Computed example of a mutant assay.
Amino acid sequence: MTEPLRVLLVEDEALILMQLEMLLEDAGHSVVGTAMTASAGSALLRETRPELVFVDLRLAEGSSGLDVARTASDLGGIACVFITANPRQLGDDLAGAAAVIAKPFSGGVLEDTLAFLEQALRRPPPSLAVPHGMVLAPAFLANWAPAEG
């Protein structure tokens, strides 16, 4: 078995947070931390340096997942995936994230997403198809485009 992905969860709905944590751990991955606000999520990103962060767009205390995505981008080497009921608010570039999953989502969508992202992050390019229910950012897709020349 491959080394588990190290994942941070930033979600302000406790039930969704618990569901995500359970699904990730059942899939053999390691949840390195959870947060409900952007400031707590950004602090945990700096502290734990996960490979992957799942983040909601709207967080507790009126904070925004966009701040978490910016922190992940600034730190480098951390893929950010939004899980939100408002994917259209992200724009075509997904606000710098690698992908977005629309709420509500099924356990199957998350499992397929994890398998795809594990390949994308560990053994690119992924051989799996982009999972139904997940939209990839053009910049993330460009990582596997053939070089021109």
Rank of each mutant, 00 (worst) to 15 (best):
R58K: 07
D92G: 12
R122V: 11
Q89V: 10
C80L: 10
P50H: 02
V7A: 10
A98H: 06
A72V: 11
A69T: 15
G108D: 15
G33C: 04
R6N: 05
H29N: 07
P104C: 13
E47S: 12
F82Y: 15
F82E: 05
V109N: 10
P4A: 06
K103C: 00
M18H: 07
F116A: 01
D12F: 09
A99H: 05
S30C: 12
P4C: 02
V100M: 05
Q89Y: 11
V31G: 01
F116E: 01
F82K: 04
A72I: 05
T113M: 13
A38I: 11
I78L: 07
L8M: 08
S39F: 08
G28F: 06
G76L: 04
D93Y: 04
T113F: 04
M18Q: 09
H29W: 01
V81I: 15
A35H: 01
V55S: 14
E61Q: 11
R58E: 05
A120E: 00
L23H: 12
F116P: 00
V32T: 09
S73I: 07
N86P: 02
T113E: 06
E47H: 10
I83G: 07
L44Q: 12
D56F: 03
A99T: 11
S106W: 14
A129Q: 14
L45Y: 04
L90F: 08
K103F: 01
P4F: 08
V7F: 00
P104R: 11
L121A: 09
V81F: 08
D67Q: 14
F82R: 03
P104H: 12
L57Y: 08
D67I: 09
M18F: 07
L15N: 11
T37K: 02
V109I: 15
R58Q: 08
E118Q: 10
L128S: 12
V31N: 00
L114E: 02
T34N: 06
H132R: 15
L44Y: 06
L114G: 01
G77Q: 08
M36A: 02
L59D: 00
T71P: 01
S63G: 11
S127K: 14
T48W: 00
L52D: 05
R46E: 15
A95S: 12
E21M: 13
I16T: 15
L114T: 05
A95P: 01
R122H: 09
E111A: 15
G91R: 04
G41C: 09
A27W: 08
A72C: 13
N86E: 15
L128T: 05
A98P: 02
A60I: 03
R58F: 03
S64Y: 13
L20K: 04
I16G: 09
A43I: 11
D74H: 12
A102E: 15
V7Y: 03
S39R: 13
R70E: 14
G77L: 07
L20G: 08
A72M: 12
I16W: 03
L110D: 02
L24A: 03
L45V: 10
S73E: 14
F116N: 00
R123F: 02
A40Q: 09
G65K: 09
P124T: 05
L9T: 02
M18Y: 03
P50I: 00
E51R: 08
S64W: 09
G62D: 14
L5D: 02
Q89C: 10
P87S: 08
